[in-house]
């Protein structure tokens, strides 16, 4: 079975600031403290397309997986299981759009998670606000005998995913605030000189 849910969030910050904050979400010095489930992030591909002006990036995000039932841990054999996610993004600065698709690369025999996010200027206030839309689907692929338990794992994954998603959005808000403070300080400096 597939569980799917949608989420919308309005950032009261302009698009360039929110997308900057979104990049920093996983690379900020505070990331290990705030998003403790994120263990490691690497950029695997980075390409500025000269024809379209779009930036294409692929990153790997290594996260601590939700705790698994005992017998699944035995099947998988790991104590602290880590899970690699692949995040592919396209940023079009002229259209002011940023699209991100994140999928899990690990444990795909058990579960498939896909999260699609888009950051766009908010239609009601395109210069001042940014709309984040997220569509998430989580599909468990159980062995027949394990179906009931798999469903519990799935539910746990959904809960964990939602908690982390909220943490991620809050952190982006926080980074936006300090980017705002930085840019007003820079503007004040420029006026003063």
């Amino acid at each position: 079975m597939v569980r799917a849910y949608k989420h919308e969030h309005i950032y009261r910050h302009p698009w360039d600031r929110v997308t900057t904050a979104s990049w920093r979400k996983f690379t900020d010095p505070d990331t290990p403290a705030v998003l403790s489930h994120v263990l490691d992030v690497h950029t695997l591909s980075h390409r500025l397309d000269a024809a379209s002006g779009c930036l294409h990036t692929v990153r790997s995000i290594t996260v601590r997986s939700p705790s698994l039932p005992f017998f699944l841990r035995r099947i998988i054999g790991g104590e602290a299981v880590v899970c690699h996610c692949i995040e592919t993004s396209v940023v079009d600065p002229r259209a002011r759009s940023m699209e991100i698709v994140a999928v899990n690369a690990s444990l795909r025999g058990l579960i498939e998670v896909e999260e699609r996010s888009s950051y766009q200027p908010h239609p009601e206030n395109p210069e001042g606000w940014t709309l984040l839309r997220q569509d998430t689907s989580i599909r468990c692929k159980p062995f027949k005998a394990l179906a009931a338990v798999a469903e519990k794992v799935e539910q746990r994954c959904v809960e964990r995913f939602q908690q982390n998603s909220v943490k991620g959005r809050e952190f982006v808000e926080r980074i936006c605030k300090y980017l705002e403070a930085e840019s007003s300080a820079a503007a004040a400096g420029a006026t003063a000189s």
Binding site: L39, D40, H42, S60, T62, I76, G78, E79, A80, V81, V82, C83, H84, A105, S106, L107, R108, G109
Partner: peptide, 8 residues
């Protein structure tokens, strides 16, 4: 199963 124990 495609996962490792330490960070890459």
């Amino acid at each position: 199963m495609g996962f490792v124990k330490s960070s890459p």
